[in-house]
Nucleic acid binder design. Sequence first.
RNA 1: GCCGCUUUAGCUCAGUUGGUAGAGCAGCUGAUUUGUAAUCAGCCGGUCGCAAGUUCGAGUCUUGUGAGCGGCACCA
Length: 629
Amino acid sequence: MKVVFKGKAAEFEEANGFVVAKKFEPETYKKFVAFVQNGVQHDLSEKVEEGEIEFIDISSREGFEILNHSSSHLMAQAIKHLYPQAKFGFGPAIEEGFYYDVDFGDQVLTDKDFAEIEAEMKKLSKAAIPFKRKNLSKEEAFEMFKDNEYKVERISELDGNISCYEQGDFVDLCRGPHVPNTSYIKYFKLLSLAGAYWRGDSKNKQLTRIYGTSRASEEELKEYLELVERRKLNDHRRLGKELGLFMLSDYAQGMPFFLPNGQIVMNELINYWREIHARENYLEIMTPTMMSKELWETSGHWAHYQDSMYTTEIDEKEYAIKPMNCPGAILAYKSDLHSYKELPLRLAELGHVHRYEASGALNGLFRVRAFTQDDAHIFVRLDQVEDEVKRIMALFDEVYDVFGLSYKIVLSTRPEDHIGEENFWDLSEKALAKACESSGHEFSINEGDGAFYGPKLDFKLKDANGRTWQCGTIQLDVNLPHRFECSYIDEHGEKVEPVMLHRVVFGSIERFIGILIEHFGGNFPTWLAPVQVCLLPVNNEAHLEYAKEVEKELKELGIRVKIDDSNEKLGYRLRAASVKKVPFTLVLGDKEKENRGVTYRKLGSAEQIPVSLDEFKVLIKDIIKNKVR
RNA sequence: GCCGCUUUAGCUCAGUUGGUAGAGCAGCUGAUUUGUAAUCAGCCGGUCGCAAGUUCGAGUCUUGUGAGCGGCACCA
């Protein structure tokens, strides 16, 4: 086991951020005295005892980051050797590895160049070049990096002493820490290439970002690369194709087609959604897909959202296809007078919206141009906001729990381009934070990421690759009700403006289905499975009739059942059912026919369970009703 | 939109230095009538994303363009 020692003592930091014990046993670390520091042996036992130095397992998260950060430096050194004109931007460790942003000038790099860079890195690794920390004054730093405008820009933002790390002929501006020398970086791989704007601003030059990953052992690297491969198996785009769930067509870029199997999943989700929303006293409405320009001008979308809207002309009048359902819901609200006694008034809508998303942003079902929001607009009095938000969060918890999904909450605050008065924003942001706090939901804050009309709580779920996608959201909005002059009559007979909450649980049903496909790896719980039961007559001549009888009885219970009477051996048909991820496979032969039984197998299990048909009916009804996962 | 890559049969993929396309699976047909993860045989199936160009000749090379993938920006 390799252990990195992190120095806390100032003089130690100055010498080098890190030293590493070569053969470390945790129980005996106090006895451990010899360290490699810049290639020199030092006795640091005293510093260990005094707690000035802490040890870090290179396989720990912190060790991982140090290793990968050092790897990005090593890669930069190798690149500098091969491409002397290269200028470097930022090169940090990230979740699963590291990257470095490089300006190669006019040269175009492709992933075919990785082999050469990796070979050079290996060479440098073998040389065991020590990482040496140096502290520079600002002037010295400017002088040292004067040929690199990116580093110069960064240095100009720093105060006081500026540290850099030197390994052989390569120096980089860096806070550290690093592994002691390049030989610690042995098990790495360059993974991909991407354009990335300098400092994340699309107005700036695009640099070449090279992603890689570095591990403490060959085994860990292999494991990681296998994990990357395994993730592909759960990719919803692949499973969606294999299981006949959805498709995409060049004729409608970014607008998914739901195929029969996928439509079943969607319909089941919608049934469930309607059920719980009826219970929670939501009233369902449906509003038009296209509405005229004036409406969007009133709502502010025309001014703040036009780039994302599809428009058309009807009878010489401009229309927009709705990118959101809110204005429609507001018109529905305004169709009648409302008493304070009616509030909270919850108008739900499964709204199919269209948004012109950048072509490069599109991604399977996760990022599309046409999708269905399981929307609701809730009109409340100001004093009802906190309770209602808590109530919505409880509903979210209930729903996500059914699928076994976990989420992270992010509070997004006012963006630069927002409408309405600042004090409303102050109040709204506080109200959302308070609702989270008082209901025991943890959240982080994303400054400036709110909607133009109000702040929001976003519920983010992870896909198979660990990327997060916003699904549920709760948005607080005083602006749209004001712009549309919404009102209710309070207990004194006065007209008062209500507050509006926008909220979606699934978010986009399409995206949510994508998440579910990956979450379950295509093995949907029985209540969602396109085909729930597959019937396999052992012999078509002798058992098909009984299979049809079983089919009829199960169908009467509303179960989605299919007979596989193809002329294949049982083994083949079992495998076929398993490939199609059917939750229950029932084998029907002489034994079963004789005593009105079935022998069932659950997906993923080889266990054969004989029961009577009546018992099976009770069992599967129960599993479906309870949404057993 | 930007950077890089990919694009060949319904699906997954081969196609060597340019000489007008192959496999497995799926599908269809026949034989087999099967008791727990692939029975055998035959057949069908491709303007090689699209459009130009170079060439005697292009799936292979060049340019343009569509779509997809990985990122970046975006996600109001």
